[in-house]
Design a protein around this nucleic acid. Sequence first.
DNA 1: CTGTCCCTAAACATAC
DNA 2: CGTATGTTTAGGGACA
Length: 692
Amino acid sequence: MMQESGTETKSNGSAIQNGSSGGSHLLECGSLREGRSNGETPAVDIGAADLAHVQQQQQQALQVARQLLLQQQQQQQVSGLKSPKRNDKQPALQVPVSVAMMTPQVITPQQMQQILQQQVLSPQQLQVLLQQQQALMLQQQLQEFYKKQQEQLQLQLLQQQHAGKQPKEQQQVATQQLAFQQQLLQMQQLQQQHLLSLQRQGLLTIQPGQPALPLQPLAQGMIPTELQQLWKEVTSAHTAEETTGNNHSSLDLTTTCVSSSAPSKTSLIMNPHASTNGQLSVHTPKRESLSHEEHPHSHPLYGHGVCKWPGCEAVCEDFQSFLKHLNSEHALDDRSTAQCRVQMQVVQQLELQLAKDKERLQAMMTHLHVKSTEPKAAPQPLNLVSSVTLSKSASEASPQSLPHTPTTPTAPLTPVTQGPSVITTTSMHTVGPIRRRYSDKYNVPISSADIAQNQEFYKNAEVRPPFTYASLIRQAILESPEKQLTLNEIYNWFTRMFAYFRRNAATWKGAIRTNLSLHKCFIRVEDEFGSFWTVDDEEFKRGRHIQRGRPRKYCPDENFDELVAHNPSLIKNMQSSHAYCTPLNAALQASIAENSIPLYTTASMGNPTLGNLASAIREELNGAMEHTNSNESDSSPGRSPMQAVHPVHVKEEPLDPEEAEGPLSLVTTANHSPDFDHDRDYEDEPVNEDME
DNA sequence: CTGTCCCTAAACATAC
DNA sequence: CGTATGTTTAGGGACA
């Protein structure tokens, strides 16, 4: 393979320019910052404005609903009416999203741009949330109506029973009930859709489909090129719209991008049509119904052959049977309504959460703006972790995510600088947002997807990647064709992939070495050409470190005595598996599974080649060592079998934790013997650290 | 307050 | 001897 090492090592020299700042973080001295004059947190404005609109629409929708109810009553009197069709209902129930996305004031392209870049939630997400809100309110009101209606019906029923014309009237009543039932059903569907979308995009934010590949179906965000394209369109259309006072440009943008970015599989109800005609679709509810008619077999309560009614999960082979099931099992009864209520509460909770997060977002943005921390020239990384732990990242002063992986950070921003920007355009590249050292906790569990996703961003923006060294090293290794890298190649990867490391050569190399040594997952392999590093992904997931407290190879004798004496206490330092990466991985995988979204990068993650390699090596060692060690714990021979088996040296980790106990650390001292040059044969594996 | 996790720095070892 | 690489420890900050 190619060795770039020679050239790269020289590049250190260039980094020296910054080296003087010692231990302090270079990021903190971000000298050039921009305060953009027009960055007035537009994203939040939307929310407020939308609420007003939503309310309006609600009322309108309410009226429609009323009319419907009246109609039904009339029809009921005329004849026993069949179950009301969806198309009749849906218009009333689903208010066009586009309306919700409209803001009362004209949004300049710049603002829009900012919205797009600063939003933690993608435009789609916002829309979804808004929709959800609408649906919720509608639902509540409709339910009230329904209640009243039911009471009336019962009254009627009673009267009619007394009057003695039961059969017919009952039938009619039943029909009416059915109508309502359908109506409720619609609402629930709507709600389910919102919930789904919300969970998928808003809360989970795992975005497994997000890798910078176009194949992801989620309308999660925009591909930069699309964004630019849209941006152009919008800006060109802007003037015209301004004159007409038409402020739906932003909504057009978002909706367009939905339709343009591959047929969305999600149940987003945003109407893709609105973008094309550009009309104010305030009162064009028919559109929504299309979404159902276009996909007659897609039903928010139906997926993967399973009824998705909360707590149901009944298997329905086809759509028809599902519908049957729906009508029979989830008919309008106490149970269903109760479940519906529960669901409503869930939604309300989510809403609450949303409100809080919105608040936070606003605070963040305000904060950043005040501090003149530029909203960033380069696009913000879409950090999965930060999305998940949004609340926390908030305090970290930045990771607002951009909908999608950026490719050309500066390009879409150029227009922005035309505005009354305080800072010159040229400074954009060097913008270093004030960022304190990132907090580690929520940065840890990254996936390859995360890194890959934001590759372009970190390549260009001198921002410290919010990933641990271990994660990055792993990524570097996994990305390599052979799944193995020399130390120098790892260095190179860091400098290649992260602008930050290009400039801040001071400490990270040492950190890399430390991490390589420290983490169990990194396996050093030696061959005749030198040594390289591989990663054991399983071990990585376990996140374990090599035992601390292990006597150093060169530890003085007195230390050794102490070590022997305090052996148990030494073990205490063992970093027992904190599985810090598992929760998120689990979530990620769950999300992937649920959405059946191909995750491009995971392919490389679970790379069998490497895993096999590493584990094969380990297994071999394991077997070999097990024999030697369990029998004769100390003394040199422990190593010979391995060499017999393989011509490589491997960082022999405590291959089998079960066996070796504390006292084995005695072996360590054997390292002083000339027999050992590199290898560590000690097996002072702690007690049951593995068990978790 | 404590434990955990990660980062950073440093000491030390070894090979070239 | 200097440098690259590797190992280990100590201590600090952030967080739960």
